[in-house]
């Protein structure tokens, strides 16, 4: 009897596969192609594209945690920018005394200094994230309106505190010697720091994909994004998972802050709010809760920003908005909507 039922439901077929949605993947390729035609000179195009990829990776590193936190617990943290700023200031504090290492003409010493700064910034921002979740987010859990207001208030306080502690002036962040300048291959110049940013972004993306797809924690996060109640009914404490993801997201924002500060070479506590505008656009384009969408969205936004900065500098940021509007017209939930119960 059961066999009969199974044959009917399974109706002589191969194992069904998830429909792979490849159209969004074609978007960056199309955008790069269009830009190639408009820009005309291949070397300029290549420089801009590398710049876009580097910027996209940095935004992805910052945005990925935010989008997961939203997907998992329906919490949107407008204060996410604070962790970016904290990361930048912590890295500056670490790199200051390490100036000899930073200025040394040795890739290993440079990397060691940078790695230490990134480590401190990442863990510092992560620890702060834990505190932020406890003090700011938890009391207004499940109340969207208050969440938006409170986290925005948290951002103001954090920025002001950073200015009170480190001084309100603009800070400089020097690139280590080994990452200044470009690698020149024939006519083509590849800026070293941008290559580094792309590498770090890819590593973060791959690590995240591996975690999400190959580990139990990752499975729980993906399941929780879809239906957190059922995850609880299976006996898992989703709050702990959420706190962990929140801290990890904050830590990544701290790492992103280090990269962004190095990329811009100067910063103030407002560095977070500056990037957040792009971050919000990215997670909306990608589909709230989707890491893959966030990755793609970051690349698209960064491409749009860099190409238009060259082609029509005055409308660079407005172009990101247009991109967002166009994508939302096509897919109102973003490129990769997350299935919600």
């Amino acid at each position: 009897m059961t066999d009969q039922a199974a044959t009917r439901t399974g109706a002589a077929d191969a194992i069904p596969q998830a429909r792979l949605d490849l159209i969004p993947l074609a978007l960056p390729v199309a955008l790069a192609g269009l830009a190639f035609l408009l820009i005309g000179t291949p070397t300029t195009w290549l420089t801009l594209t590398l710049a876009a990829l580097a910027m996209g990776m940095m935004i992805f590193v910052i945005a990925s945690g935010l989008t997961l936190v939203f997907g998992l617990m329906d919490v949107i943290n407008f204060g996410h920018g604070a962790f970016i700023a904290v990361g930048a200031y912590l890295a500056m504090t670490v790199l200051g005394p390490l100036a000899p290492l930073v200025q040394a003409d040795s890739l290993m010493l440079n990397l060691a200094a940078l790695a230490l700064a990134a480590l401190v910034a990442t863990f510092g921002a992560g620890a702060l994230g834990l505190a932020f979740e406890r003090v700011v987010i938890r009391p207004v859990y499940g109340q969207h309106l208050k969440q938006i207001l409170i986290t925005m208030g948290g951002l103001i306080i954090a920025e002001q505190l950073l200015h009170a502690i480190f001084g309100g002036d603009q800070k400089a962040m020097a690139l280590p010697t080994a990452f200044r300048g470009a690698i020149v291959v024939g006519d083509l110049a590849f800026e070293k720091f941008r290559l580094l940013a792309v590498a770090i972004g890819l590593v973060v993306f791959l690590a995240m994909q591996l975690t999400l797809n190959r580990t139990r924690i990752g499975l729980l996060i993906r399941a929780g994004v879809e239906n957190s109640e059922m995850v609880e009914a299976l006996g898992y404490r989703i709050r702990r998972l959420f706190v962990g993801v929140f801290a990890a997201g904050s830590a990544l924002a701290g790492l992103g802050g280090v990269l962004w500060a190095l990329y811009r070479e100067t910063f103030t506590a407002a560095i977070g709010s500056e990037v957040m505008v792009l971050v919000f656009i990215v997670i909306i384009i990608g589909g709230l809760g989707s890491v893959g969408g966030c990755f793609l969205g970051a690349i698209l936004v960064a491409m749009m920003a860099n190409y238009t900065a060259f082609l029509a500098p005055k409308v660079a940021l407005a172009s990101s908005i247009l991109l967002m509007v166009a994508i939302l017209m096509w897919r109102p939930q973003g490129l990769y909507p997350v299935a919600k119960r």
């Binding site: 919000f280 940021l317 407005a318």
Partner: peptide, 29 residues
């Protein structure tokens, strides 16, 4: 129309983005 038909939380993020783009556009022109 772009943001309110999806999720109220979109509205906060999109208005933030639009407002900063508008401000930059205004100072650029």
């Amino acid at each position: 129309l772009v943001s309110l038909r999806v999720k109220a939380i979109f509205f906060a993020m999109i208005t933030l983005a639009v407002a900063s783009a508008f401000m930059i556009l205004t100072t650029q022109l």
